[in-house]
Design a protein around this nucleic acid. Structure first.
Length: 574
DNA sequence: GCCGTTTTCGGCCCGACTGTTTTCAGTCG
């Protein structure tokens, strides 16, 4: 079985959890946890590297011991330490840690006292009222465990950012109306523009917290109040979305916003940096001893640590502090820099507007060009175009271009990439188009090697321009396809073709981490709406957010070019 | 277990809230 970085990361995470339950040295635990996280996001596949006989690259947080264990895991799929821990503690106990309210200490107590080692045994013990009798537990804790187990069965869902926005903005607006409130910000992963969010963090600046707390907990969408204190409260809305509120006084606003924007690991990195300068950073400010030296704005916080302000989208502890220190952070792409859109549909296939309606709407949004890219014949459910219908459609676009002012329509197609990597229309037809957008709509779960070959074969086609929604992920129901994405990206560079970042809120595909790899590999990314209606043209905003999270600048984005440069770049692919 | 313009040893991020306590440990973000 091939071992991926994610598998190595999983072994380290499990070791961390088991050590935690054993009350091992917390810093040793942290070392495994940090390593797990680093590896999960590491760009190059370590197993492949080692198999080629290459040295393990120097990775921060991986020392001699963990490097040895990586070798071991790559070779055997597991490691001796994990096996030993499994002998001391049943593997399933780690799932108990996922129950809210249960940490390592309580899991240990449950195992030692009641021999509970999985969720089922936990539920039975709670139902029999055995848990409340344990030292350090009580009736309330037991009830909470039962409730959490029930919620677990329903599975806590993550919300697409576009959906969370509707709930979050409404509650923020409500809090802005409370008397005395100075400022309301939505922080957390929402502000960092993550594709999905697990909960919402709202930060309120107000001289007194009472009115805000009252309005928050009485908000009519609140289904349950999980916690409520003087400065913090947590509720669950009827939609299932959890919302955390923090109220702070004015002076430390910037420090609080930084703190509650996260990410957690970015915060930790910042605090370490503060510490290295003899300072202390917390949500109230930057302190030398007990005197505050910064915190009124985010800029002041970063400046106190000798850093420029870092855009929220980059705050993931993916090297942004080092790049900021060298003043080398990218100038992130903005919506206003897009000159056009290279993927949309009309009534001719499964869209809702006519070609001319889409053109006029795109022009009104400042676009200088719009590629019309209907589905191809195989996708019958979307009324994909046959050769005959496509030829007719191309005529219509030509005629429209003659009378349209201020925008150019490009003739394209979203052609299906078939299971074997062939394209769903004949070469001579594809050759008559301005661009060929290839897309996978079937066979998402081929073995990775076959999936990779399929994509590379499609991209090698002489008329191929752009790979649409490359990983085919659906944030509500389907993970990214398994393929060797680094190879696919490098193949795009060799072929001179491009990758799409599809802006539909449910896709946001190419995902941020691969955007960054594409940038590093010199492959331009097209940020497209894949609009099926006029309103969908505005989805580009979501795509821009994902692109910014992927460190993309205007120069890394294909459709920031003017039409002449765009045609030249597309020509090179044909 | 990692790491070093204070250190190869001795550090390693910080505070609020809850429940079970009777002054605080455990958990969470």
């Amino acid at each position: 079985m091939p071992v991926h970085n994610a598998d190595i990361a999983a072994v380290f995470e499990e070791i961390a959890e088991l050590l935690e339950i054993q009350s091992a040295n917390p810093f040793r635990i942290r070392a495994y946890r940090n390593a797990s996280r680093t590896l999960a996001e590491f760009g190059r596949d370590l197993a492949t590297l080692l198999r080629k006989g290459e040295e393990l690259p120097k990775i921060a947080g991986i020392g001699d011991d963990l490097a040895r264990k990586i070798h071991e895991i790559v070779e055997t799929g597991t490691c001796a330490l994990l096996e030993r821990l499994h002998k001391e503690l049943p593997p399933a106990v780690t799932e108990l840690l996922k129950v809210p309210g249960l940490g390592p200490k309580r899991v240990r107590a449950l195992y030692d006292e009641l021999h509970i080692q999985d969720l089922k045994a936990l539920e039975q013990a709670a139902e029999r009222r055995q848990i409340q009798r344990l030292h350090g537990f009580g009736e309330k804790t037991e009830r909470r465990i039962l409730a959490a187990l029930r919620a677990h069965k329903e599975k806590k869902r993550r919300f697409k950012r576009s959906l969370a926005a509707q709930y979050a903005e409404a509650i923020a607006a409500e809090l802005r109306r409370v008397k005395g409130v100075v400022k309301v910000d939505i922080a957390g992963s929402y502000r960092r523009c993550q594709a999905t969010v697990g909960d919402i963090d709202i930060l309120v600046t107000a001289p007194s917290s009472d009115g805000v707390m009252r309005r928050f907990t009485n908000y009519d969408e609140v289904a349950e109040i999980l916690a409520q204190g003087h400065t913090r409260a947590t509720v669950v809305l009827r939609s299932g979305l959890q919302v955390d509120l923090r109220v702070i006084a004015r002076p430390g606003y910037g420090a609080a916003l930084t703190y509650f924007t996260g990410s957690k690991s970015h915060n930790i990195a910042l605090r370490k940096r503060a510490q290295g300068r003899g300072l202390k950073l917390n949500e109230y400010g930057v302190f030398r001893g007990s005197s505050p030296i910064a915190g009124e704005s985010e800029e002041s916080v970063y400046a106190a640590l000798d850093l420029p302000w870092i855009p929220p989208e980059l705050r993931e502890d993916r090297g942004e502090l080092e790049w900021a220190e060298r003043a080398a952070l990218p100038e992130l792409v903005e919506r206003s820099e897009l000159r056009g859109d290279l993927h949309c549909h009309t009534k001719a296939s499964d869209g809702h507007a006519s070609v001319s309606e889409m053109a006029v709407a795109a022009r009104a949004r400042g676009h200088r060009y719009l590629a019309i890219t209907e589905h191809s014949q195989r996708l019958k459910i979307s009324r994909g175009l046959t050769v005959e219908r496509l030829l007719k459609h191309m005529d219509e676009i030509d005629r429209l271009n003659e009378r349209l002012k201020g925008i150019t329509l490009l003739k394209g197609i979203e052609v299906d990439i078939l299971e074997d990597g062939a394209l769903d229309l004949p070469d001579d037809i594809l050759g008559q188009l301005d661009l060929v957008v290839g897309a996978v709509h079937s066979h998402f779960d081929l073995p990775p090697a076959r999936q990779t070959r399929r994509l590379m074969k499609a991209m090698a086609h002489p008329h191929f321009s752009l790979l649409a929604h490359p990983t085919a992920r659906d944030l509500d129901k389907r993970p990214s396809m398994d393929a060797d994405w680094l190879r696919v990206i490098r193949h795009a560079r060799e072929r001179g073709c491009f990758l799409e970042l599809n802006s539909q809120p449910v896709r946001l595909d190419l995902p941020d981490t691969w955007c960054r790899v594409a940038k590093e590999e010199g492959v331009k990314v097209a940020i497209n709406s894949d609009a099926h209606s006029i309103e969908d043209l505005d989805d580009l905003a979501w795509g821009i957010s994902e692109a910014r999270r992927g460190w993309l600048s205007a120069e890394d984005v294909l459709n920031t070019c003017g039409i002449r440069d765009l045609r030249r770049l597309l020509k090179a692919t044909m």
